[in-house]
Simulated scan of single mutants.
Amino acid sequence: MIRLRRSNERGRANHGWLESQHTFSFANYYDPQQMGFSVLRVINDDLVHPQAGFDTHGHKDMEIISFVLEGAIEHKDSEGNVQTLPAGEFQLMSAGKGIYHSEYNPSSSEALKFLQIWIEPNSAGGEPSYQQNDFGKEVGLTTIASPNGKDDSMLIKQDATLYQLVLEANSEIKLQIESGRRVYLHQVVGSLAVNDAALVQGDGAKVSNESSVTLINTTQQRITTLIFDLP
């Protein structure tokens, strides 16, 4: 079964300095039919205006992934991490028993665009941790985060794996899905055919009870998709 989550149906928020689109229920946006998918709880498509950002705030027992699409993030947290994430980089912050952080757009002229992703951990508490990496744009599947750190990916506290898929124009890949697993696709750049369903930028697809799906780039440009393999 493939159920689509269209970009134009997502929840929206505009705080002046922040414009956000919520794939799942978040903050003041609530839809009982969109409370997440498996352990995937949040995908926020955020635009932060220049010289603005998220003030210091706390999280607990959540795996928080950021993927910078445009601009850069200045990150600071209570564990002493002070980092800059440019476009193309991923960050994974395991909140554990508790962590405080801030995220800021240092540019005086350019907007910051990034995806904020929350995945529920499989254990509570523990020490917070921070990881950051640029995985490039290699064609095919690249492992971004996994429970065992395979392929030099970031380590996540959940039986879930995040992949980046890059497809060249007019190419396809058949994605095999293990029995009992679910998959969520989020279209980042360009458009993608998932079997007979078409995704455009910002769209998502919930895949369950399928042994495989065929992913096809029918366009003339390179495209990027995030793929979540979930319990």
Results as ranks from 00 to 15, higher is better:
residue 10 R to Q: 12
residue 172 E to D: 12
residue 22 H to Y: 11
residue 164 Q to H: 12
residue 77 D to P: 01
residue 222 R to T: 15
residue 124 A to G: 05
residue 54 F to S: 09
residue 11 G to Q: 14
residue 170 N to T: 05
residue 133 N to G: 01
residue 191 S to P: 03
residue 125 G to P: 00
residue 192 L to E: 02
residue 26 F to A: 03
residue 230 L to I: 11
residue 215 L to V: 12
residue 135 F to S: 12
residue 162 L to A: 02
residue 129 S to C: 07
residue 70 E to F: 08
residue 227 I to S: 03
residue 1 M to I: 15
residue 157 K to P: 04
residue 69 L to T: 13
residue 160 A to K: 01
residue 105 N to F: 14
residue 1 M to Y: 02
residue 172 E to G: 01
residue 176 Q to M: 06
residue 128 P to Y: 06
residue 97 K to Q: 14
residue 24 F to W: 09
residue 198 A to N: 14
residue 69 L to R: 11
residue 7 S to K: 14
residue 78 S to Y: 01
residue 93 M to L: 15
residue 23 T to G: 07
residue 159 D to A: 14
residue 88 G to M: 04
residue 164 Q to C: 13
residue 10 R to S: 04
residue 68 V to T: 10
residue 146 S to C: 08
residue 189 V to A: 09
residue 139 V to D: 02
residue 154 M to L: 14
residue 163 Y to I: 09
residue 116 Q to E: 15
residue 190 G to N: 00
residue 7 S to L: 06
residue 37 F to C: 02
residue 109 S to T: 14
residue 161 T to S: 11
residue 31 D to Q: 02
residue 137 K to T: 15
residue 97 K to C: 13
residue 126 G to K: 04
residue 82 V to N: 13
residue 15 H to G: 06
residue 13 A to Y: 04
residue 72 A to Y: 03
residue 166 V to A: 02
residue 126 G to W: 06
residue 179 S to M: 09
residue 51 Q to L: 15
residue 141 L to A: 05
residue 199 L to V: 00
residue 146 S to E: 10
residue 52 A to S: 15
residue 45 D to W: 07
residue 1 M to L: 14
residue 191 S to N: 13
residue 97 K to A: 13
residue 198 A to E: 15
residue 50 P to Y: 11
residue 84 T to F: 08
residue 135 F to G: 10
residue 58 G to R: 07
residue 82 V to C: 10
residue 110 E to R: 09
residue 100 Y to F: 13
residue 54 F to D: 13
residue 111 A to L: 10
residue 83 Q to A: 15
residue 56 T to V: 09
residue 31 D to R: 05
residue 221 Q to D: 14
residue 1 M to T: 15
residue 16 G to T: 04
residue 69 L to G: 08
residue 115 L to F: 12
residue 208 S to F: 10
residue 141 L to C: 05
residue 136 G to K: 06
residue 155 L to V: 08
residue 18 L to G: 08
residue 105 N to Q: 05
residue 163 Y to G: 10
residue 175 L to W: 05
residue 89 E to I: 04
residue 227 I to R: 00
residue 157 K to I: 12
residue 204 G to T: 01
residue 16 G to Y: 07
residue 131 Q to N: 11
residue 114 F to H: 07
residue 119 I to K: 02
residue 192 L to G: 00
residue 8 N to Q: 13
residue 8 N to S: 09
residue 215 L to C: 13
residue 155 L to I: 10
residue 163 Y to R: 09
residue 118 W to C: 05
residue 86 P to L: 08
residue 44 N to H: 05
residue 85 L to K: 01
residue 146 S to W: 06
residue 115 L to W: 10
residue 141 L to S: 10
residue 92 L to G: 12
residue 167 L to E: 03
residue 154 M to C: 11
residue 132 Q to H: 07
residue 197 A to W: 03
residue 194 V to F: 00
residue 61 D to S: 10
residue 126 G to V: 13
residue 197 A to R: 08
residue 2 I to Y: 01
residue 227 I to H: 02
residue 41 R to K: 09
residue 117 I to D: 06
residue 178 E to L: 08
residue 76 K to G: 06
residue 18 L to A: 09
residue 165 L to E: 08
residue 5 R to C: 01
residue 17 W to Y: 07
residue 226 L to D: 05
residue 99 I to E: 04
residue 62 M to W: 00
residue 113 K to R: 15
